[in-house]
Structures are given as structure tokens and as C-alpha cells.
Amino acid sequence: MIPDSATTTQDIEQRLLKIRDRPVVLEAKHLTRHFRTSQGGTAVALQDVSFQIHRREFVTVIGPSGCGKSTLVRLLAGLDEPTMGEILVDGKTVNGPGPDRGMVFQSYTLFPWLTVQKNVEFGLRMQGKGDNECRSQALQWLEMVGLESKADFYPHQLSGGMKQRVAIARALAARPRVLLMDEPFGALDPETRAQMQSYLLQIWQNINITIVFITHDLDEAVLLADRILVLGAADGVHPGGHLKQFMDVPLPYPHDVDVLRDPKFMAVRTHLDDLVHPRRELVRDRLPITRMVPLGDDV
């Protein structure tokens, strides 16, 4: 049994409280990002988002399309500059991208000219590590994602799921403090996706890594997370994407696919659904369509 496993409600609450005692690894303070629109106005992608994420926490970020999830994760990675606000890693302000924040993209972004092994070595080489160290560490990470047999393959010879596992190994090999993932499994078929979720949970449970995981899939968000960061789109009160709720996931730990059958899972999921899609009436709204099927074989 994994040391901090918890099954009863009390245990679960205890565990979530204990996570709060861990040091803060990643902090966002009043993050705001405005974009200049082509019409000359400004679009508010993200408005005043603040949160703290603790060591070895698994946080998923969820929200409706266009609410600023990608913008948020790009700001955290340093790939984009906030209009206002700041980002702290281990209490220190960071500017621009750095190896302390690894990133996994939906589009894999493996270097096509490097073999799988050389891809995983990339971050180590950037840190000036020697050939032998690079090789042995890369193989170790490849083994962790179950792809050591593909070390000499080129990315175009791999399936989507394999590519994303290489991308994860590549990001982790650079030993980041935080792993940022922007809808990493969005392009995979449901089966591979479930497999990847299981792999990711296993990896996370066995190494010291904090994960911020963007998704628009409610099940995925609940299944993976200790806490879920819910972003909301612009509404009457807020001019743009904003933080709606940072909620605990009170489910037995460690999570695995069995969680999906837990009645508490449905409760959390329904709650999330109402938060993310607050205007369900829109779906029930009727279009003024007249029947154009005069076949008379309705049953």
C-alpha cells in the first residue's frame, strides 16, 4: 500500500489537509492577460487569477472552451508574458521559460530529427551533462514510460500515445519542479487516453513532481486531481476568464479507474458540470425548425 493512502471520508479529509502543509511550489499572483484584438480593442483572456499549488500536488484545470486555460498554462510556463501579476516558483519570481517548469503539449512537439532516446536526452544536454549520464538517464526515463524498446525509433514511427509518453519522459528527464500539461491526451482515442491517465497517475505517485494538468474532460479532471481549479468564461460580472473555484476532490486515494464507479465521483462530477456549464438551458433551447421529412415512417 502506498504510504499516504486514504479510503475513509475522515482519512481523505486528513490527507487533503496534510497536502496544504507541504511547501508551496508554484504560486500565481493576480495573473492577468489582455490581448490586443485586430479591431483595436482589448480582449481579456485572463483576469486576476491567484492560487497556490503545493509540492507533489496534482491539480487539474478545467473550464469552458476559450476561458483562458491555455493562456494560463502558457503564462505559467513563461511562454507568454502576463499583462499584470507574477508567477513564483519556490517563492522566487520567474520570468520567461526555464527548466524548472516542464511542459507537455497536446501536439507532442517531439523533435522529428532526433531518435526517441535523443529526444529524452535533450533537456539533459541543455544542462551540459556528459554523454554517458545523458544516455543512462534517458534510458531510465524511457523505461519508466515503458518505451525503452523504442529508444532508436524516430517520432514518426510511433503511435500518438507513444509519442505523448516520450514527451512526458522528455519533460521529466530535465527534472522540473512542476510539470505543466495542456490537454495532453486531447488528441488520443478514448482507450489510449484511459491508458495514459493510468500511466500518468503511476508516474506521479512514484516521483517527486507537481503537476498542473489542463483538460476540458470532466471525468479526466476528477479522476486525476487532488484539487481542481475551475476557470469561468467572461460573464456579466467578469470581463474575461477568471478563477471560479479551487475545489478539493474528496475521493479515495490513490485514484485509479475504480474511482469512476464511486458514487462520490458522480457527486463531484455533477457539481463540476454545473460550475463549468452553468447555462444548461442553452442546450435545451429549441431551434425554429419545421419538419422536412414527410415519410410517415416515424415510430
Binding site: 510556463a77 511562454l79 512537439t109 523533435f111 541543455m126 530535465a174 505543466l180
Partner: peptide, 11 residues
Amino acid sequence: GLLEAASTLGA
């Protein structure tokens, strides 16, 4: 995306 990936790997 390749450039962004490389820069998050410390390039």
C-alpha cells in the same frame, strides 16, 4: 511549438 518545447527544456 518545437522552439517553445525546447525553451521549456532549458534551451
